[in-house]
Write a protein that binds this DNA or RNA. Structure first.
Lengths: 200, 200, 200, 200
DNA sequence: CATGAATGAGAATTCATTCAT
DNA sequence: CATGAATGAATTCTCATTCAT
């Protein structure tokens, strides 16, 4: 229950990520997590109220890690289109470097139960910054004037999917592939005329 | 082990879909499926070799159902862009009418284990037809010249996601919403100049 | 879940009684019951929905067994006072012969949780007969005109307690002891004048 | 291990009583007691050697509290029959005012394990006084000449049961009910002729 | 074919108790 | 003294699968 002291907390989260990435939710158990973390199973309950709390934490952590990675590379002085394209690139690089985190996010996003009682804490700094970028883009007439969640969907999930596909061999690992992906996503989210302009 | 006899086979698949749609893979068990189908647990093994075989079948079935629905509405005589846009519309309507099937597809698509040993049988008629449409679009310079799997991804997953979002209240249920979605997807998959043309 | 086939069901109940009688509710576990019954623990769930269902059944069974024993010896032709005194004697003998059943009843009666969701099925034949005896006694002006539950309490619990006390050595095991007990109970439940008459 | 220091000791006992009264022995744990008392779990072991020691203490405490309440109202100058009747009344009032204490006593009295290694310390002042009252009554030919424990049983347990029954709605909460109860108990424990006399 | 029963493995939790700080 | 952390045992229950009838 207490998060206080040590690295065991982190070990558990890392173990959970590894487990979720390779086995999915169906094969996820506190027993396995604990074993992977090299910790007696019952100790897991010192750090997390229950299995669900661990999953919640893993979800928040992975999402946050990814947000941080994207935001860190953001050049807020640059034009919005540039920022958007760069954020895709950054996210792709992140996905390549941390495939387990991305796999975990995908697995958890698909969970029906998780969705029910879990609302992403939208209040962290990094998320705010991305949200700001998008609302700015919207107001500047750069982004299509549709639901922001939908735009975010296009900005992230195809990237995750592509990165996973590259890793599994479904997609070829070429520079052109990423370029294509970016153009597709931009074509989806930008206002048509802005997209034309951005292309050149 | 044989599929021969009866409607219990279908009952099991329907039960599995309902279960997966509402509880996800983690809550899926042969016990529950059998109970939901009103069939003795052990009888499940008459129709399916094991749990995994049931899941495989469910995956094939749901994917196939969806393909059939899309293809059924396809007007092969129409211009490719029209066919594409219509297929999105059809798929969206299908998702609205069969939310459980779509939820099941999403859940199973996210499963890491399933991916490993499961290759979609690409040989059914409906899939061929869609594949043909896409290769035609590619060769005609209508679609972006990138991996067909990626184009298929853009053609389906955002639709599933949007439909689910509408149902959960995340997205508003307006005609404009669907129009936006179609334009986004088309913007993603069409060659830019074709897209411009299609817009008008 | 199914009670159908065999003696394992009974073995489990007997094991539960033995366990409750010697260890109380706090030491009662499905693990121990199953072990005592010589059955794999998980098999317990074939016969009982869960632990509580087993306890409920044990409660009903023990209560019923005791009712049957008392009613079996009842001479419905005899005067009511005689019947009452005899039922006490019978109950005492039963308690001596089946100390575990009585101990189990006492243990379960004291359980706070059990009380909440458990209502004795008052509809069995034997219970009806006792109830009839008491209402008859009430209408004949033989029993004190107070709540029947209270009268039943006096007719049973002191007997259980006395029998247990005799067995544990708290009370001496003499014929006089039982006579005293019967007189006390009769003094409690009979109308004073009837009691006087009965005494002689 | 020492009782010395503080009110936390009492808090633990009160918490234990509350827990036993509402959940019974089966749901009793040091974890819950400590939480209810607002004390770190491990601190419980500062005040009590182990779980059993806590239960023993709770038993002694509740029994003692109840004895004190009864004795406090005792008018040793009054006739023994009056004292007995009054003690029942007092005990009933106590049971109404402290239902948790009474429930705890009942729960602990039913515990098989507790009985084994627990002998009430019969040496406290209040207990002596009650014992004196009873032996006096015995020698004066007022009480039936039977085991004193049995008489004590009749003097207390029906009262507890009745009070609990009133609270749970099993018995109606009327003045007549209490009067009936007292007459029943007196009928049980008094010599028949004394009882007759007491009635008038 | 159909099915109830069986079963060992694992699942999530809770617990009583100890110990180092 | 006080306390958070630790831990192994135990508990309830579910599961996937097999088998005898």
């Amino acid at each position: 229950m207490k998060i206080k002291d040590d690295q065991k907390y982190d070990r558990l989260i890392q173990a959970a990520i590894a487990l979720l990435a390779t086995g999915g939710l169906a094969n996820f158990s506190t027993t396995k997590v604990a074993k992977q973390a090299g910790i007696p199973q019952s100790n897991l309950y010192i750090y997390f109220k229950n299995k669900q709390a661990l999953l919640d934490t893993v979800f928040q952590t992975t999402i946050h890690t990814q947000s941080v990675a994207v935001v860190a590379e953001l050049d807020t002085a640059a034009p919005i289109t540039i920022q958007l394209a760069n954020s895709i690139k950054t996210l792709y690089r992140f996905s390549q470097e941390h495939p387990q985190i991305v796999a975990t996010i995908q697995v958890l996003m698909a969970d029906v139960q998780l969705k029910k009682h879990l609302h992403l804490k939208q209040d962290d700094h990094e998320n705010q910054q991305i949200q700001t970028l998008l609302t700015d883009g919207l107001q500047a007439g750069i982004l299509r004037s549709t639901d922001l969640n939908l735009i975010r969907y296009f900005l992230t999930r195809p990237v995750f999917n592509y990165a996973a596909g590259v890793q599994s061999g479904l997609y070829p690992d070429t520079a052109q592939g990423l370029t294509d992906l970016i153009q597709m996503i931009m074509g989806a989210i930008l206002q048509p005329d802005v997209y034309q302009e951005w292309l050149s």
